[in-house]
């Protein structure tokens, strides 16, 4: 049921039964390494190109999710997936092998919450019993599409972020399924916010207003406030974007600093790993949520979280044509029954 301006309350509260995450070598060397299910040591993942490698990684991630829950591909009704590459080839080629009906999504780095939202709605409406939501990103394939060739010697801006090599996926089941998995209670799909930032190396600055808008709308629509949640988790705002988000809220007299955590800020050791403003990419929130935060939800260290993935919807073409960066954020409220 729609509540307020943008939010939907999920009456049947579908459950996130389980998640799975896989990361690349650099992410595995980061501070969260022990929380990820799988990792790969080679950025090619044994394939001939980075794009194939990314597909392979997503494939392993979904396969592991199914096998650890004793599911076969026939058990899954639908799959929502997306990535950063043109025409979402990583997802398309990965899911080709699965024989599962597939919806390809593009929401840049916001794709994980977009797919989780749609998967939850489909299950909540009673149209499906098991739906998978998945996303991936890969540093090397994103770098060659959005920036310079890898071997080119150049400097990154201090506001720049490093695309995360990782995939994450979750399986959503109806609320009536037994077990104490966390439930999806509300979703707030975001609208596009563009504050005129044109610098492709400053996506945190471009995306922070979108995250702010969606979170504030979520609070207004549901009548909740930051104190309701144990954590407000944003996708990949990075150090600068996270700073701006907290500041924008404090300008409204709302303090989220103690509740807010950004996946882009915690996936790397920014100083030691030279990742400037932090991590980005759809794999960032996907892997950090699936690995780190879902574990805490399962063990009830966290009971109520608001997961907000943020995306910058530009392309190299639009940037070269002088366009600013349209940004979006989708919020999903995930809660344990207490």
């Amino acid at each position: 049921m729609k509540v307020g301006k943008q939010t939907i309350r999920l009456e049947n509260t579908p459950k996130i039964l389980d998640t799975c995450s896989i990361v690349g070598p650099k992410e595995f060397a980061g501070p969260l390494s022990s929380y990820f299910d799988l990792h790969v040591d080679d950025v090619f993942v044994g394939e001939k190109s980075f794009e194939k490698g990314e597909s392979h990684m997503l494939n392993s991630c979904i396969n592991h999710l199914l096998s650890k829950n004793g599911f076969s591909t026939q058990d899954i009704d639908y799959i929502f997936a997306g990535d950063l590459l043109n025409q979402c080839i990583s997802s398309g080629y990965c899911i080709r092998d699965f024989n599962i009906p597939f919806f390809g999504l593009y929401g840049a780095c916001s794709t994980f919450c977009e797919s989780l939202t749609l998967a939850s709605l489909l299950v909540d409406g009673g149209f499906a019993k098991k739906v998978v939501a998945a996303t991936s990103s890969h540093f090397c394939s994103a770098e060659r599409q959005f920036r310079m060739p890898l071997e080119h010697g150049n400097q990154m801006s201090p506001t720049g972020q490093c695309t995360v090599t990782a995939s994450g996926c979750a399986v959503v089941v109806p609320g009536t399924v037994k077990g104490n998995s966390p439930k999806v209670t509300y979703v707030t799909p975001g609208k596009i916010v563009d504050m005129g930032i044109k610098d492709m190396t400053n996506m945190g600055g471009a995306m922070a207003p979108a995250a702010f808008d969606t979170i504030l709308t979520h609070f207004k629509d549901t009548g909740r406030n930051p104190n309701y949640y144990d954590k407000i988790i944003t996708g990949d705002l990075g150090l600068l974007g996270a700073d701006i988000l907290v500041d924008l809220f404090s300008k409204q007299g709302i303090d989220i600093s103690s509740k807010h955590e950004d996946c882009g800020c915690i996936i790397y050791d920014n100083e030691a790993q030279d990742t400037h403003s932090g991590g980005s990419g759809c794999g960032c929130i996907a892997s950090v949520f699936s690995g780190y935060f879902f574990e805490q939800l399962k063990t009830k260290k966290l009971n109520k979280v608001l997961l907000v993935a943020t995306g910058a919807l530009m392309s190299p073409v639009s940037s070269m044509q002088g366009e600013s960066i349209p940004s979006i954020a989708h919020a999903v409220a995930i809660e344990n029954e207490v």
Partner: peptide
Amino acid sequence: NIAMNDEEYSDYVEQKA
């Protein structure tokens, strides 16, 4: 929801970056 126009926001980000 944000009491800034694009230019002001751009300056604000610049100053924070």
